[in-house]
Amino acid sequence: MSLIITIFVLVFLTQLISWIGQTVLLELAYALYLRIFRASAVAQQRQLKADLLAKKAELLQTSAQDQFAKWAKLRRSVDKGLADLEKLNGELATSKTSFAVQFNGLIWALTTGLQFVVTWWYRKSAVFYLPEGWLGPLTWWLALPFAPAGSVSVGVWQMACRRVIKVGERVVKELATSPTPVEPVAVDVDADDDRSKKQS
């Protein structure tokens, strides 16, 4: 893939992630991770919750005075189930925190980090050359920091791509939120004249 397209795709992916939201992507990726790698823990958590609800309902229907032995047994069972559920919830919360750190690191590496690497690696390369004398004395600025004179550097091309994508985003948002045009209402002039004559 050519350098010009590679840089545009990297900048677009970074903007796409910011549009969707990194937390939304994290939740989707974590749900997929749980389904693939921690399915047994999730099933166990679901089963514990269902058992606890059933035992709590039975405990509420059992009289502590009339059926104390049954009530005490159910109470111990509910307490043990709550302790098991808290332990499992703690394990899953720790797993989610660890996953979030790794996921955010991966997203950073694939977007911002990769942009830094590409910018550094191709710092002396020209993305493309401008026609001679096209912008006059300003052409040196487009080659900053190390690209050949008369060319557009990787850093400047990244800035241009980012700016164009953000302007495109703003235009799409304005078009999406603009109100629909209101159709003119037909007014019967003769009826208005009749009303004014009756009032006078």
Rank of each mutant, 00 (worst) to 15 (best):
T6E: 07
Q15A: 15
I17S: 14
G21R: 05
Q22L: 01
Q22I: 11
L25I: 00
L26V: 12
A29H: 08
A29F: 00
Y30K: 07
A31V: 10
L34R: 12
R35A: 04
I36C: 02
S40N: 04
A41W: 05
A43R: 07
Q44W: 11
Q45N: 02
Q45H: 09
K49I: 09
A54L: 03
A54E: 02
K55G: 10
K56V: 04
A64D: 03
Q67R: 15
A69F: 04
K70I: 12
W71E: 10
R76W: 12
S77Q: 12
S77N: 06
D79Q: 11
G81W: 00
D84F: 14
E91Q: 14
T97R: 12
F99H: 14
F99I: 09
Q102E: 15
N104M: 12
W108E: 12
A109S: 04
L110M: 13
G113A: 09
L114I: 09
Y122T: 15
Y122R: 15
R123H: 01
R123I: 12
P131D: 15
E132Q: 05
P137N: 12
W141H: 03
L142S: 11
L144I: 01
F146L: 00
A147N: 06
A149C: 10
S151G: 13
V152Y: 11
S153Q: 10
S153Y: 07
V156M: 04
E169I: 04
L175C: 09
L175A: 04
A176L: 07
S178D: 09
S178K: 05
T180H: 08
T180I: 02
V185C: 02
A186P: 14
D193T: 02
S196G: 08
K198H: 03
